[in-house]
């Protein structure tokens, strides 16, 4: 009886262990940017200005015009 139990139990445990080994968490550890701790760059504010962006857009068109 005991041995019979073992005959069932050991493979069962083995299978369970195997299955456990195959398990992979679907959750992934992601690194999200923290809050910037450095010196303030005035360019960050400058770059939000539509006039600044327009200037760069015009520059791009000038650079890439094949004439």
């Amino acid at each position: 009886m005991k041995t019979r139990f073992l005959f069932v139990a050991i493979p069962l445990v083995a299978v369970l262990l195997l299955l456990t080994g195959c398990y992979e968490s679907r959750d992934v550890t992601l690194h999200d940017a923290g809050v910037y701790k450095g010196q303030t760059d005035p360019l960050v504010e400058m770059s939000a200005d539509p006039a600044y962006q327009e200037r760069l857009r015009e520059r791009l068109l000038m650079v890439q015009t094949d004439r």
Binding site: R26, D27, V28, T29, L30, H31, D32, A33, G34
Partner: peptide, 11 residues
């Protein structure tokens, strides 16, 4: 850097 867990699978 902070570590957080997301459940979306990411390739």
């Amino acid at each position: 850097m902070k570590l957080i867990k997301k459940s979306d699978p990411v390739s």
